[in-house]
Design a protein around this nucleic acid. Sequence first.
RNA 1: UUACCGGGUGGCGCGAUCGCGCGGUAUGGCGCCGAAAGGUAUUACCGUGAGGAAAGUCCGGGCUUCAUAGGGGAGGAUAACGGAUAACGUCCGCCGGGGGCGACCCCAGGGAAAGUGCAACAGAGAUAUACCGCCGCCUUCGGGCGGUAAGGGUGGAAAGGCGAGGUAAGAGCUCACCGAAACCCGCGGUAACGCGGGCUUCCUGUAAACCCUAUCCGAAGCAACGCCUUCGGGAGAGCGGAGCGAUCCGCUACGGUUCCCGCCGGAAUCCCGAUGGCGGCAGAGGGCGCAAGCCCUCAAGCCGUUUGGUAACAAACGGCGCAGAUAGAUGACCGCGGCGCUGCAAGGCGCACAGAACCCGGCUUAUAAACCCGGUAACGAC
RNA 2: GGCCCGUUGGUCAAGAGGCUAAGACAUCGCCCUCUCACGGCGAAAACAUGGGUUCGAUUCCCGUACGGGUCA
Length: 128
Amino acid sequence: MKFKAICENHLFSKAYAKGKRFVTPSLAVYLLPDYAADRLQKAHPLKIRVNRIGLTVSKKIGGAVERNRTKRIIREAYRRVITENAVRVGYLIVIAARERATKKKSDELVPELKLAFEKLGLLSQGTK
RNA sequence: UUACCGGGUGGCGCGAUCGCGCGGUAUGGCGCCGAAAGGUAUUACCGUGAGGAAAGUCCGGGCUUCAUAGGGGAGGAUAACGGAUAACGUCCGCCGGGGGCGACCCCAGGGAAAGUGCAACAGAGAUAUACCGCCGCCUUCGGGCGGUAAGGGUGGAAAGGCGAGGUAAGAGCUCACCGAAACCCGCGGUAACGCGGGCUUCCUGUAAACCCUAUCCGAAGCAACGCCUUCGGGAGAGCGGAGCGAUCCGCUACGGUUCCCGCCGGAAUCCCGAUGGCGGCAGAGGGCGCAAGCCCUCAAGCCGUUUGGUAACAAACGGCGCAGAUAGAUGACCGCGGCGCUGCAAGGCGCACAGAACCCGGCUUAUAAACCCGGUAACGAC
RNA sequence: GGCCCGUUGGUCAAGAGGCUAAGACAUCGCCCUCUCACGGCGAAAACAUGGGUUCGAUUCCCGUACGGGUCA
């Protein structure tokens, strides 16, 4: 399951400044409606609306190995959340790792991420 | 057995399920994003996918650009000698010095006898000196003048050490022995150097102070650079000569491998800047094929064997010939096994340091547990 | 990814081989004042780290750690 990544710095800044925020013990999630969603939907070969997602792991977490591993675990948790639940699309999602995330297994992050998505109103009513 | 010394291997393994990057084959779309260049799916299968340090960026090389011969200066690096290497500040051997009972380890290890500078405090005096002392002379008996580096004390360093002669007292002033340094001769060694002899001299330390000597070095770096795209800006100058003229020639401003000399360019239309993109970036050559691709050969490199060499290394033969991302691909989870710690046991906990970014050769630093080889000392046994 | 710098009290900083390692602000104590401020006097407090050169290193050389700048 692929997802579109955020790489521009200004989108991160917007998400931090204007987006809705929910913080769990090991993650901080920022959500902002994606103004470019319509344009991206047209660009997509299969005409699917997608969420754009950005991962932030600061140097405070550790070296390159630790940070890569943390990003992989968060990505795995995100993948499982969106396959097990129906998630509304057309948003910018920035997930920042807090210091505890390094030691977690991906099983433990799934409920956290799901809770955050629920509180932010990302989950639609119908189950998949 | 205990305590060490030197070198090397290695960097947990296997199997399910889900998932990722790249390449390929099929499937599939001809749409969409973008100003353009350019980019792009879905699904299935196959192949492939991080390190010994990928790190620090401390050296060396390839590669690329700077339109350009050469010489000099400045600046930088290195420093016994011989070799290895594409090259190195690396590696090997050897010499000298220092440390260790020893295996062995450490050393920016040229020149202080070319010149300059510096040596605080202490001390009389730091490259030159007379404070105390010793000796001679004078004396108003307080001391003064002269000689003296043997003795005292200071210091990291005080005119080589010690004995005899010598002297008023002393002094390499003279002599014997010892020590050090330069030079010459002989022997050994490719050489640094070592040993022996001769002669001369007795000279503080510091060059990781300036400096001198020898050798080497152009500068920048893949964010280099090349091409494409769209846009913006600038320069196409002056003088003299030839020619009816287009134009040509010379000089100058100016520009350039950054300073100087010299040389080149002095307008081929060229230069500068911005925007985004592709290449550089995954070796080279050949064959087949419309193409995608497939096959063959060879290099760099890696592994093994043999030969040469004390060794670094070289040569021959055989095999392999291997990641290419762009918010940055190897993960998650489960089971079985391995090793270590803990525990009577069941079990529990842990398995390091750490992530390629143009590519190589080194150095330095980080690194859990385990294994292998060679050697030393002490003790014990035979 | 490349290149280039820096590190001295709590903070800003001078010192560039030897002296008690300046100075300012901040802190603390005393004086001044009815009290506070200002002012005066005094105190405490530092050379990032491991080696090397040197008689002697904060300074010179090498390594390490940390921090910063710059190039699209």
